[in-house]
Design a protein around this nucleic acid. Structure first.
Lengths: 209, 209
DNA sequence: TGACAATGTGACCATGTGGTCATATAATAA
DNA sequence: TTATTATATGACCACATGGTCACATTGTCA
């Protein structure tokens, strides 16, 4: 948690700082990101940074929380209409919303992407708390429900299914972020969505002819 | 390329060095790996290291090549019997061989894993050369052939299909390496193989009931 | 005005980095 | 033996890191 001093700061200064930190952490992994650069680019003395945050991890955690909130905010308006969609449609929407979020908030998406690739499991747990499991659990419930509805074959292992869906989701994200630099975004989005549909066709029907 | 001096070294010294470098690069990303530690742990002066290799990247490249050769070596004896297997069986074998390789050569697998997660695309190309596309191309050809045989639905997009298969492969690897620390390997292998089959069931048939 | 607290600051610290180079040592050739 | 070449070495370089702290500046009450 940031210190009280940070919250007392004028809004403008807070935002500038957060913006700068997001910028750095979206370019570098936690370890390689530089407190010095954040301080410099935010136009703040390094000493001040340590008056606002306990340490580097505290700063990162706060930035990470903000990214999480932003994404949640992004999804929340859409969550309630989820009931009218079938299994594949829900997954599609999730993938699509993810892509859209990444295109609109590339830095936040890149930040999350760096975090996912982090190999230090203890560090991950420290930052995320119990939230790690949430995404997987969501998909598991989704599959369980779809099984009851008869939309999804009962022969399928729920956990493995959720694992596949999650992994393809993160790999779409990765793909999106990497391609983003090279191509014009709009054309690119079309292509991405096209690929999502092709992917979902396979997810739904499998490779079998 | 290592300098001639390196190749002139007595076998034992070369191996000790390579072993040590593999150890370091399996624990850390390229950037975070430490030349100092490699020199120290190998019992060699840092100056000597720079008499053998141009720079850090040169060392890494060489280690990476070795890892590649080892894996190729591992697969080569098995590749020829590939013709007798059907589409899903080939993929299964590939996943299984990958898991086995990772369990038998955890450091090399971890090294490769770190490389895959590397975000600097230019760096990746520099290290891998044109080889990046190879894996994807292999799967694409596999799918194309299976389409001709009628094993795989013609409605499926080959590139997207290859992408899915590749990504699940790397995510299995990731999963394997992460779980490895916690559990007894043999039990763990059983579980992994079980999960591979469950995964392939979905790959083959899709989620649809 | 003066007193006290809250903020801001950057020189400084210990540690680590990849890389260099003058010099010492060993091996080889004449 | 001497002269020449190949190899080994670690002090040293410039730079960067996260974090600290004594001190300066500002804001807020009385």
């Amino acid at each position: 948690m940031p210190k009280q001093t940070f919250f007392n700061l004028p809004e403008e200064k807070k935002e500038k700082l957060i913006e700068t930190a997001i910028d750095e952490f979206s370019k570098q992994s936690f370890k390689n990101a530089s407190i010095n650069k954040i301080a410099e680019n935010a136009g703040v003395a390094k000493g001040s940074l340590y008056q606002y945050f306990e340490d580097k991890k505290d700063l990162y955690k706060h930035i990470f929380d903000i990214a999480g909130s932003k994404k949640q905010e992004y999804l929340i308006g859409w969550m309630h209409q989820l009931q009218h969609l079938d299994f594949i449609e829900i997954i599609r929407e999730l993938y699509v919303k993810g892509i859209e979020f990444a295109l609109e908030n590339p830095k936040l998406a890149a930040l999350a992407n760096h975090f996912i690739k982090e190999s230090d499991v203890k560090f991950k747990e420290e930052i995320m708390g119990v939230g790690i499991e949430k995404s997987n659990l969501f998909f598991e419930e989704l599959i369980e429900n779809a099984k009851k509805n008869g939309e999804v074959s009962k022969e399928i292992d729920t956990k493995v299914g959720a694992y596949i869906i999650t992994n393809l989701n993160t790999s779409i994200m990765d793909y999106t972020l990497n391609k983003m630099e090279y191509e014009d975004i709009l054309k690119h989005k079309e292509m991405l969505l096209d690929n999502v549909d092709k992917m979902l066709f396979i997810i739904r029907n499998g490779f079998k002819s």
